[in-house]
Design a binder for these strands. Sequence first.
DNA 1: CACCAGGCAAGTA
DNA 2: TACTTGCATGGT
Length: 216
Amino acid sequence: MSAKSTQILDEIYARLLERYGPQRWWPGDGPLEVMVGAILVQNTAWRNAEKAIANLKRGAALSVEGLLKLGPSELAERIRPAGYFNRKAERLLSLLRFLMEKYQGDLERMRSESSSKLRAELLEVKGIGPETADAILLYALGHPVFVVDAYTYRIFRRHALVSEETSYEELQEIASGGSAELERYQEFHALLVRVGQDYCKTREECEGCPLKGVNW
DNA sequence: CACCAGGCAAGTA
DNA sequence: TACTTGCATGGT
């Protein structure tokens, strides 16, 4: 990690924060709800995932055992608004069973394990890939890791900061430069999604983008 | 009407 | 190993 790339990353972060301010993703709803949200939002607009979470909370607060008791069909029915509801119901159940088997549902204890161990374990769970694993680490468990998503790819490529064939882990490594505070990781990812939605969906719409001109 | 959203795994060659 | 396809609702 060169001093120069650190400087660019700090520049990008500063510009985004100035334009949009703190995003405060997943502030205080508890680690389980954040994990559930991380699965429900896969390739889906957040507002749809939000409706699904509201349906899950109907009647009782979210708990590992409570959700397990719903079973596949009831779970699927409740999360219908999030799309891919059958797949996501299975993915939620995989996660919940993992939490019970490895940590007896104790997310506070889970949190104190190392990031690398947790990441490896999460990737073993069917339905959890690199982005979801990192989102869980970052927003549910409070570990400082950079979450790479489709917008991160688009934005870094558009500014010629990485090449076409850069892998997830490579981009994660590159983007992890600069300050390493938890809050910065959390805000950085959210801000990239935000600016991506505003300016980086298609080839056009670069006019007014706060990142215009950034380059190595 | 078409297109896509804070992915992932399974199938195919 | 490298590509392609299925999953699905809701907003623009």
